[in-house]
Amino acid sequence: MPKNIPSYDLSTVLEGPDPAPLLALNFGFARARVLSAALELGVFTELARAPRTSAALAGALRCDGEAVRRLLDALTELGLVRGDDASGREVTELSRAHLVEGGPGFLGEHFAEVLAQWDSWGGLADLVRSGRRGGDLGDPGARGLHRGMFGGAFALAARVAT
Rank of each mutant, 00 (worst) to 15 (best):
M1I: 15
K3W: 05
K3M: 12
N4F: 13
N4P: 09
Y8N: 03
Y8S: 11
D9S: 10
L10C: 11
L10H: 05
V13R: 06
L14R: 04
E15G: 14
G16E: 06
G16A: 13
P21R: 06
L22H: 08
L25M: 08
N26C: 15
G28Q: 04
A30V: 15
A30H: 13
R31I: 15
A32W: 04
V34I: 14
L35R: 07
L35G: 10
S36R: 12
A37L: 10
E40G: 14
L41W: 08
E46H: 01
E46R: 12
R49A: 15
P51M: 09
P51Y: 00
R52T: 11
T53R: 05
T53I: 12
S54R: 01
A55I: 12
A55P: 02
L57M: 07
G59W: 12
A60S: 08
L61N: 05
R62I: 13
R62M: 13
G65F: 04
E66P: 03
R69A: 14
A74F: 07
L75M: 09
E77Q: 15
L78V: 02
G79W: 07
V81R: 05
G83E: 07
D85E: 06
A86L: 14
A86E: 15
S87P: 02
G88K: 04
G88T: 07
G88V: 05
E90S: 13
V91N: 00
E93F: 01
L94R: 00
S95K: 04
A97L: 08
E101W: 08
P104G: 07
G105N: 05
G108W: 01
G108C: 01
G108S: 06
H110S: 04
A112I: 07
E113F: 11
L115Y: 08
A116Y: 06
A116E: 08
Q117D: 14
Q117Y: 06
W118H: 14
D119L: 13
G122H: 03
G123S: 11
L124D: 02
L124W: 01
A125T: 13
D126K: 09
L127V: 12
V128Q: 11
R129M: 06
R129Q: 09
S130N: 06
G134P: 00
G135L: 08
G135K: 07
G138Y: 03
G138M: 01
G138A: 02
D139Y: 00
P140T: 04
G144N: 11
G144F: 03
R147H: 12
R147F: 06
G148D: 06
G148I: 00
G148S: 11
M149Q: 12
M149R: 14
G152Q: 08
G152H: 04
A153M: 06
A155L: 15
A161Y: 13
A161K: 13
T162Q: 04
